[in-house]
Amino acid sequence: MSGTSRIRDKFLELDSKNEKALITYTMVGYPNEKDTLTVIRGLIKGGADIIELGFPFSDPLADGRVIQNASMMSLDKGANLGQFFRLVRKIRQESNIPLVLMTYTNILYHQNYEKFFKEIKNAGIDGVITPDMTIEESKEYLKAARNNTIDTIFLVSPNTDKKRLEKIIRQTTGFLYLVAVYGTTGIQNKIQQYTVDALKNTKKAANRKIPVGIGFGISTPDDARYFVKQGADAVIVGSALIKLVEKTPPSKLEKTIIEFTKKLKNTTKVS
């Protein structure tokens, strides 16, 4: 890999402080254009290490109810790529935090991978997560990402076998995203044993070459603390934050997000 990566640098920095990463997800245009930035400011002030910017897609088939509803609301209010670029540029004026775009293949393909990755790199995006992009279909996608030094964060699942894990790891830069559950994004009631086993196996396959983040169903500081203890290099919180945004009045939004993010971040400080 050539070029610098804010994501890689962030993990190195955290490692030196004996910390794990808190990765937070929020959606472009949710609850509206203005307050997306309020939420992000709250996340940054609360201590998030990496921010995933979800860009809404009309057919989010890997997402549960919470993110589905947020996507629909955001699109209904007119969320578009122009808004996304405005947002990224504003964040970049204020912060050097690593930014990852999470959306579905069609949004990226429709723009043309090469052209779009160049544009998002220029705006300040560091990586992409595309839940319906498999390594088999990723040739052009990877080429465009490498050309523009965009990290390609692939997802793996508890049922991904060892051989495939290794294949995926070879195409992954930034960090590897372990999907914690059999299911879509959203809040889960209890932590499953298979998730703990999957984390162990994924860490082993990653072999310290690439950090392993775990997400889907991690919604409380207790969940986060548990997975940090089990060896996750990063914990990823999404739906719980969207839910918090949903029920918080705009006047209290930044403060509420800061408080919740702080609680989450505290769990990632190992010593």
Partner: peptide, 20 residues
């Protein structure tokens, strides 16, 4: 074999479904 009809088809799916 690669699941494609020319440039069409393929498998763009969440990783969880790949083994299935």
């Amino acid at each position: 074999k690669d699941g494609r009809f020319g440039e069409f088809g393929g498998k763009y799916i969440p990783e969880t479904l790949v083994p299935a």
